[in-house]
Design a protein around this nucleic acid. Structure first.
Length: 259
DNA sequence: ATGGTCGTAAGACGA
């Protein structure tokens, strides 16, 4: 069982790259973030020809998440399931292959202290509340996505440069830790405890050539699932190329499970 | 270096 998470930064612009990637790595499940399109605009047909069903939460211009799967997705749910009126498409969940799978795109937070920073902290708290209310740490659950969190210094090439930003300040790290404390394992970290393997490099300032990277994309699994994890890698080849090659600023994170 | 480069969508805004 191979599970991927990839912030594609527009699924329509990245479509050919995505199809090539799926063909090369053959994941069973591929969680996508930053679709930047509505469900009506989502390229279901091309991805179906590539062999994948899709569970989509779309939105015009911004955000948008999806789960691609070889097998048919059941019980598709969108949003955090609380009573908050939230128009931002940042979570889709579905059941397939004996797993509950979620694709999430955590708010970036803009700047510390801003309104969207509060929204980010609230969103992480609401996700924890959803797990408390509707899920059990004993179930087979995988949460994949762009968390917009640098867990610690091992997840950045230049940790000091990010310490005071929305990706790393204490309240953000604490909110993420509370998520893990519910009963989730960061399986990539489990496979690579030494860290310094990244999934995002800024388009600006030669971020990728200088390897000025961050690990922002995570696969979080309950203990029973994490115990089956056999390998993980960040496919940095997908970040290569010039403007003409249209790489996303994130690369796919690939995780294999014996199941 | 309070910059820089993308994507969306048609001028900023978000990241």
């Amino acid at each position: 069982m191979r599970i991927v998470t990839w912030n594609v930064n527009s699924v329509r612009t990245r479509l050919q790259r995505l199809v090539n990637f799926l063909d090369r790595h053959q994941p069973d499940i591929c969680c996508l973030q930053e679709l930047k399109c509505t469900a009506e605009q989502f390229p279901y047909d091309v991805l179906e020809r590539a062999g994948y069903h899709a569970a989509v939460a779309g939105q015009k211009t911004y955000n948008g998440v999806a789960i691609l799967s070889r097998t048919f997705p059941d019980d598709i749910r969108r949003g955090l399931g609380d009573d908050t009126d939230d128009p931002q498409a940042r979570l889709v969940a579905a059941h397939m292959d004996g797993l509950r799978v979620m694709s999430i795109y955590v708010p970036n937070g803009a700047t510390v202290g801003s309104e969207t920073f509060s929204y980010k902290l609230d969103w992480l708290g609401r996700l924890r509340a959803m797990l408390d209310a509707h899920h059990d740490p004993g179930e087979r659950l995988v949460i994949c996505g762009d968390t917009n969190v640098i867990r610690d210094g091992a997840d950045a090439e230049n940790p000091a440069a990010w310490a005071e930003t929305v990706l790393a300040v204490p309240p953000v790290r604490e909110a993420f830790d509370r998520l893990l404390d519910w009963g989730l394992v960061d399986v990539f970290r489990q496979q690579h405890p030494g860290g310094h393997l990244y999934s995002w490099w800024d388009y600006r300032n030669l971020g990728f050539p200088r390897n000025d990277g961050l690990r922002l994309d995570h696969v979080l699994a309950t203990q029973t699932v994490a115990a089956d994890c056999s390998a993980a890698f960040a496919d940095r080849d997908e970040r290569k190329g010039t403007t003409d090659d249209k790489p996303s600023d994130h690369c796919p994170v690939v995780v294999d499970f014996d199941m």
